[in-house]
Design a protein around this nucleic acid. Structure first.
Length: 448
RNA sequence: GGAGAGAUGGCUGAGUGGUCUAAAGCGCCUUCCUGCUAAGAAGGUGGACUUGUAAAAGGGUCUCGAGGGUUCAAAUCCCUCUCUCUCCGCCA
């Protein structure tokens, strides 16, 4: 697109249209359950922090269904009249009479269709605003303070007494160069240099290898996606501001591999025998983090670009909560093998995301900063995301059903790196590299 | 980037305005037959929404790349977009 002969507004209009289109196929919570089990859904949603108008939606849903019936009846009439007419000799008096009859039928149908479209639009908007219902095992709470510590692994008190925040390590700037990142790109885009770059690569290899052992097939995925994909996984339309956007081509830089990997199976139907499907992928992740910049985000704690391995599962609805536990263990094992103390949080109803039914966060202990850093978030979306993305399966006997999707980081690199730097620092100022990484990095210590 | 061709069901592929309610073949499923296999016979064969029901069966509407238009009526005609293929150009 070197010759931009079209006016600037053109691309933004097109872009807007595209976004609207992308929202078209969207559907979210199970309508049947919502209609038949309204109370349970209401109770579940009330525990979440999201507002939605259930009553309004159900009233409109009723109206929509009535209207659909009316429109369909009109169309059926039109159709049968058309078939009658097809049997008549063209141009005969009967034929011409029928044409007149059909004119009025067509006008009726058209009118009903316009009305239906308007209702459908409102209906969809409300439908979209209904969040997923939290699982009964999710702790009830209002804010992140109410999240429950499920378990703590490792001994934080045994961390080296000389631990300092990683950004205060004297040689830190030599191996991770922020100022030059600023020069080349901007804040939050550091260069990793020499042994540090190798350490990042070693971690990636370790994560991918472990994922493979756990049964996840590796994807190397696109790192830019179109609006339809970003909508299917829920980044659009709400969290638009989190993503970098290539305006010229209407493509989004992915905030996580979840987006391309989950969309791999968008609008597809699995055979029941294929489930569960496990996939993983390493990608750089891009997050604008607009407005979230401030204290507590120094060094590697929060970046605009970072590396992450993501684990994704498509499973039978009957097993998704067991699969979540397994997924969490797959992520936990990584921290254990790296010998990094961590804890697992069960995210409470008030802090859980819009599409989540249940969510665990894994937080690694950063001994220098003396804080927990989130390195993984493992979630069961039940059928919520899959319905939106049109990912289903065909039971051996019976009708097509929506699969359940889950994903979890396994893991996000920079904060793991921060924990290694802070927890493994020796009295001589060097950092000991976890022995499990020996296979991919031959040095035992880095720094100084 | 330029020029041309094209997009029909799980696949191949017919269909240029009205019984298209999409042919035919392949595949798949069920049943039958043949002592295995192969071959053969009959029937069935997607998805969405909606109706119906305890659940089903059954009924209706939509669905021929996407969106819009023309028409009483569109897979079929017109416009826009997306994608695929071929050729040319450029290029890791």
């Amino acid at each position: 697109m070197t010759k931009s002969s079209f006016p600037k507004t053109y691309s933004s209009k097109k872009q807007l249209k595209k976004r609207e289109e992308a929202v078209e196929f969207v559907c979210m919570i199970d309508l049947k359950i919502l209609r038949e089990n309204t109370e349970a859904v209401r109770r579940g949603i009330e525990k979440k922090k999201f507002q939605c108008d259930l009553e309004g939606f159900l009233a409109l849903d009723q109206k929509r269904r009535l209207h659909i019936t009316r429109t369909e009846e009109a169309r059926a009439k039109q159709k049968s009249a058309n078939n009658d007419m097809a049997a008549l000799p063209k141009g005969s008096p009967e034929f011409l009479k029928k044409v007149e009859e059909m004119k009025s039928l067509a006008a009726q149908v058209k009118e009903l269709e316009i009305e239906e479209k308007a209702i459908e639009e409102k209906w969809k908007a409300l439908y979209l605003s209904i969040p997923n219902v939290p699982h009964e095992s999710v702790p009830v709470g209002k804010t992140d303070k109410d999240n429950q510590v499920v378990l703590t692994w490792g001994d934080c008190s045994k961390i080296s007494p000389c631990a300092v925040p990683h950004y205060d390590i004297p040689w830190f700037g030599k191996l991770i160069d922020f100022p030059r990142g600023v020069k080349v790109t901007g804040a939050g885009f550091p260069f990793y240099i020499g042994d540090m770059a190798r350490l990042v690569r070693a971690l990636l290899n370790f994560f991918l290898e472990e994922a493979k052992k756990a049964g996840y097939e590796e994807f190397m995925a696109p790192i830019v996606v179109n609006a339809a994909s970003a909508t299917a996984t829920g980044q659009l339309p709400d969290k638009e501001g989190m993503m970098y956007y290539a305006n010229e081509d209407q493509l989004y830089l992915i905030p996580t591999a979840e987006v391309p990997v989950t969309n791999f199976y968008r609008d597809e139907i699995f055979e029941e025998s294929e489930l569960p499907v496990y996939r993983c992928g390493y990608t750089p992740c891009f997050r604008r983090e607009a407005g979230s910049w401030g204290k507590d985000v120094r060094g590697l704690n929060r970046l605009h670009q970072f590396d992450k391995v993501e684990l994704v599962k498509w499973v039978h609805p009957d097993h998704s909560f067991e699969e979540l536990e397994k997924l969490r263990l797959d992520a936990e094992r990584l921290l254990q093998k790296l010998e990094l103390p961590y804890r697992v949080l069960a995210i409470c109803t008030g802090d859980i995301g819009f599409p989540h039914s249940k969510q665990y966060d894994l937080e690694v202990w950063a001994g220098g900063q003396k804080r927990w850093l989130e390195v993984s978030s493992c979630s069961n979306f039940t059928d919520f995301q899959a319905r939106r993305a049109g990912i289903r399966f065909r039971p051996k006997n019976g009708k097509v059903e929506t699969v359940h999707t889950l994903n979890g980081s396994g893991l996000a690199i920079p904060r793991v790196l921060a924990a290694i730097l802070e927890n493994n620092i020796q009295s001589d100022g060097k950092v000991k590299i976890p022995s499990i990484l020996k296979k991919w990095i031959d040095t035992e210590f880095i720094g100084a």
